[in-house]
């Protein structure tokens, strides 16, 4: 504990953010090494702090992740006669911690360019402060604009990743359903998807899981009377 105190607050902060990011990737289904998930502060310091002043060096913290086979299966649509061999709608992920205080259009565009040239499916940019309004607009419209990776770009503010919100006792477990599971659910309850309750894609947990429009999550709560209670949400 005493050794912790001696580190700079910025380093401890970034260490927690780094850990949350790794956990987030693991929860989404990317392949992660267990050592990385439980990286100690000392190791984090030796890997990512600057020699001169012990402050963290964000430009060295970037990493990439590959989806696990389980995740690939989950993101693959069930085969149809028209499309007998569907490709998974996911791929490799690139995560970058930007050292710039202010992230504007220029930085975001550079990041997108990097993702395209590196052939990444999607990317996550983690910045110290909220990005500018115009950059947000670019982010929203990136599907329409022809630049950017196929899976889109997500931007997180460091503040939001300081704690892992899914570990809070009041946050129930969210499980993403695959297209096939979703169809089964709709058939089981004889529903149309529009008849499901909804969740916004901007919801903190939805952002954590990287939900896209049209996906369904199963939410499992503890219930005093029934033991477990499952409900479903349609991401909108």
């Amino acid at each position: 504990m005493d050794s912790d105190r001696r580190e700079s607050p910025a380093l401890i902060r970034l260490w927690r953010i780094y850990k949350t990011t790794k956990e987030m990737c693991a929860d989404r289904g990317y392949e992660m090494i267990d050592e990385d998930l439980e990286i100690s502060l000392a190791e984090f310091k030796s890997r990512f702090s600057k020699e001169s002043d012990g402050e963290p060096d964000r430009s060295r913290m970037h990493f990439s992740a590959k989806p696990s086979t389980l995740m690939l299966a989950k993101y693959t649509d069930p085969p149809t006669p028209k499309n007998p061999d569907p490709q998974p709608q996911t791929g490799s992920l690139w995560i970058e911690f930007t050292p710039d205080e202010n992230v504007g259009l220029k930085q975001l565009r550079d990041f997108m360019q990097h993702l395209v040239t590196g052939n990444y499916w999607s990317g996550i940019l983690i910045c110290p402060k909220p990005i500018t309004g115009m950059a947000l607009r670019l982010l929203r419209g990136s599907g329409g604009l022809d630049e950017g990776p196929p899976g889109g770009v997500e931007v997180f503010v460091e503040q939001d990743l300081l704690v892992n919100i899914t570990k809070h006792e009041l946050v129930p477990k969210h499980v993403l359903l695959s297209k096939e599971e979703k169809n089964q659910l709709l058939a089981r309850y004889r529903l149309k998807e529009t008849q499901l309750p909804r969740i916004q894609v901007t919801d903190p947990v939805a952002r954590y899981l990287g939900l896209r429009r049209g996906q369904v999550v199963k939410i499992i709560r503890r219930s005093e009377t029934a033991g477990r209670y499952a409900s479903y949400r349609w991401a909108i």
């Binding site: 992230v103 504007g104 259009l105 220029k106 930085q107 500018t132 309004g133 115009m134």
Partner: peptide, 10 residues
């Protein structure tokens, strides 16, 4: 204003 902000960042 956003344009000015963006230019300042650049």
């Amino acid at each position: 204003d956003s344009l000015i902000e963006e230019r300042n960042i650049a």
